[in-house]
């Protein structure tokens, strides 16, 4: 229970800090200007550090994971994506993992039924909720470009139009807002209801989910319910985008709660499981080629072995061998 309540308390405290800071201490500048820059810097430097660290780690074995026919004789059809032998095969595999969560699509679920029977079955809900969750988050982040750019690039405008095409409520409801809430609810409930998943879940699994939920709720509240002055928000956003240090105008405290939680997420990002965002692109089991028979993979930390061939041995002892009557290869 503690592992669920603790993250909840932490998120609540994180939300209260900017609220109290702005409402009672007037720390607009700290939460509106200093925090975002700090968080962006930590995110950038942290991600670079993690990625460079990972890229520099030597890979001792060819550990590509395969589940298809590897490249073989010409008349045996190769499964290019499951068992890549060329870099572009692996690129397709990585991208299908990133964009479609291909390996999660194979997700199975084990269930103990009366009998007792242990039943395994295909379970696509996690894949669906995960995919929808990630895509919604991406679209939401892209959509926020309208707060940072003076003129909106056409693709961002298309995304906005598509996202709000239902045209219900004023301002128009973004579908991703509703979808991301539904998906994140599923992801939390899944961790709570299923005993097996509950046992392996940690505080660090619940915390990002709660944090993202809080960010989404604050954002939704600002757009549809409590409202804030968008002019000041836009002024602050464009200011941040061009590295200005101007003080923000009068914006509601709820905005700073939203912004501070986003900053917390950015700072938390490089030091948590959320780095999978970058790690997925360089994951060796996905990026390596299954060509261990065509090309030798040498463990980079192998110590150089000093060896001596038989030819060298014979060269040294040939005369003695001949005298002793031992056959030699070279006369």
């Amino acid at each position: 229970m503690k592992k669920v309540v603790m993250p909840l308390v932490i998120v609540a405290v994180l939300a209260l800090i900017p609220y109290i800071g702005v409402e009672y201490a007037g720390l607009d500048y700290l939460f509106g200007v200093i925090m975002p820059y700090t968080a962006a810097l930590v995110l950038l430097a942290g991600m670079l550090w993690r990625m460079i660290d990972w890229l520099r780690r030597p890979v001792p074995f060819n550990i590509t994971s395969t589940c298809g026919q590897e490249q073989s004789l010409d008349w045996i059809r190769q499964d290019r994506i499951e068992s890549p032998s060329k870099p572009w095969h692996a690129a397709v595999r990585v991208l299908s993992e990133v964009l479609l969560f291909r390996s999660l699509f194979r997700n199975n679920k084990a269930e103990l039924r009366k009998g007792p029977d242990l039943v395994y079955g295909s379970h696509k809900w996690l894949w669906l909720a995960g995919l929808v969750f990630h895509w919604s988050l991406l679209l939401i982040v892209v959509r926020h470009a309208r707060f940072f750019l003076a003129t909106l690039p056409a693709p961002v405008a298309w995304i906005e139009h598509a996202d709000s095409f239902l045209d219900v409520t004023v301002p128009a409801l973004y579908m991703t807002d509703a979808i991301v809430l539904a998906a994140v609810s599923y992801l939390v409930i899944r961790r709570l209801l299923d005993a097996k998943v509950r046992i392996i879940s940690l505080q660090t699994d619940f915390f990002p989910l709660f944090l993202i939920t809080a960010i989404v709720l604050a954002g939704i509240s600002m757009r549809y319910l409590t409202k804030v002055d968008i002019m000041s928000v836009k002024a602050l956003g464009t200011g941040l985008a061009e590295f200005s240090l101007d003080a923000p105008g009068e914006i509601g405290a709820l905005f700073y709660v939203h912004l501070f939680l986003v900053c917390s997420l950015m700072i938390y990002f490089p030091f948590s499981k959320l780095v999978h965002m970058g790690g997925i692109f360089i994951s060796p089991t996905r990026t390596m080629l299954n060509n261990s028979r065509a090309k030798r993979h040498v463990n980079p930390w192998n110590a150089p072995v000093k060896f001596r061939t038989y030819a060298e041995y014979e060269d040294e002892y040939r005369e003695k061998m001949k005298k002793a009557g031992i056959p030699v290869e070279k006369e």
Binding site: R146, L149, L152, D167, P171, A172, I230, M231, K234
Partner: peptide, 8 residues
Amino acid sequence: QYANVEPT
């Protein structure tokens, strides 16, 4: 225009 809003 400034806030990139297109009211209906």
